[in-house]
């Protein structure tokens, strides 16, 4: 897939602070790219540079083939931008708000009436068309702003924390809307703190910390790169110490943990102590995992369940970042 957003050594330096440091990222066309990082990592600064609102100190970036430095108008034509904090004109009706921005995107007046209807339908606000913008809830304003970004049918949506401050329902609605927009062929580049959203909808993830891109790629690839070992979960009926002894020093076993057992519900609804689960970080291929299980069973150890845990994005994020705050 060709890159629709590309940055090369993009840097933004203030007097005492380097907000973005030699950032080189690449977003594939049609991707939903989750831009993740702690507060102050440089996400918003990067987005402001990509949307031509901020001049980079050095480095280059291209959006839809247009250089942000040389062709800002081309960039603006290709993007729809929603900042993390944005205002709406409270003295306007919902349709007037969209009509104004459609006019700002040079859409002819004759096309605007139809377009506004379509946009309101897409974000499920058709019933509020004649209402004043200040009467909308925060989630609705967020959806209205998203509709605004789509007025000129841009190729790329750059959204800075689109779900921040929303209640769970509004958050899910925005997430579903992003998936829908992706299906319509839009490339979506968005920053968020909500890793569950990233894991659920993103096809590409970039993790940024202290202005540097520390990891980039699809989630599975990132997991393989950042967490090369496997995490095995062995549920035992007993003989935990014997099992630990058997695993100790064995080739491929990196680390063992025995998390506090929790209670589990029995069939008749009474809480019962759960079986101990031994977590083993293991470096080895499928054959080595199979051999390990075989060995445990051979020794007569009471293995109830043997499975491999999937690393979630939180673990990948914690592995990739070091908690540096600029």
């Amino acid at each position: 897939m060709p890159a629709i957003i590309e940055t090369r050594h993009l840097t933004k330096r203030y007097t005492r602070l380097t907000a973005v440091n030699e950032l080189s990222l690449s977003v594939e066309q049609g991707a939903i790219y989750g831009f993740v990082g702690p507060n102050g990592a440089g996400k918003t600064t990067t987005m402001r540079m990509l949307t031509t609102l901020l001049q980079p100190t050095s480095g280059q970036a291209w959006v839809a083939g247009c250089s942000i430095a040389r062709d800002p108008r081309g960039v603006r034509r290709a993007i729809g931008y929603m900042p993390d904090f944005f205002g709406v004109y409270d003295d306007m009706k919902v349709w007037e708000y969209l009509d104004f921005f459609a006019a700002c995107y040079e859409i002819p007046e004759v096309q605007r009436t139809h377009l506004i209807g379509d946009l309101l339908e897409l974000v499920d606000l058709s019933h509020r068309r004649e209402d004043m913008v200040d009467t909308l809830s925060r989630g609705m304003k967020q959806r209205l702003c998203l509709a605004r970004t789509l007025a000129h049918d841009p190729q790329i949506l750059i959204l800075d924390e689109p779900a921040s401050g929303l209640d769970p329902r509004a958050r899910i609605e925005i997430r579903e809307l992003l998936v829908e927009l992706s299906r319509m062929g839009k490339t979506i580049f968005f920053s968020t703190h909500i890793l569950a959203d990233v894991a659920e909808i993103c096809t590409q993830v970039g993790i940024v910390e202290a202005g540097k891109l520390v990891a980039q790629g699809d989630l599975a690839e990132m997991q393989r790169r950042l967490m090369p070992h496997r995490r095995l979960q062995i549920t035992l009926l007993g003989q935990v110490e014997e099992t630990q002894q058997a695993l100790l020093g064995r080739e491929g076993v990196l680390e063992m943990r025995l998390p506090q057992p929790t209670t589990s519900d029995s069939k008749n609804g009474e809480a019962q102590p759960a079986h101990p689960i031994l977590e083993v970080d293991f470096a080895g291929d499928d054959a080595a995992v199979s051999a390990l299980l075989h060995d445990l069973v051979q020794r007569g150890l009471p293995v109830l369940r043997f499975s491999e845990a999937v690393h979630d994005l939180e673990e990948v994020f914690m592995q990739a970042t070091k908690g540096i705050v600029t």
Binding site: L53, R76, F86
Partner: peptide
């Protein structure tokens, strides 16, 4: 910023 990123 919303206005600045339009074609206006």
């Amino acid at each position: 910023d919303l206005l600045r990123t339009t074609l206006l």
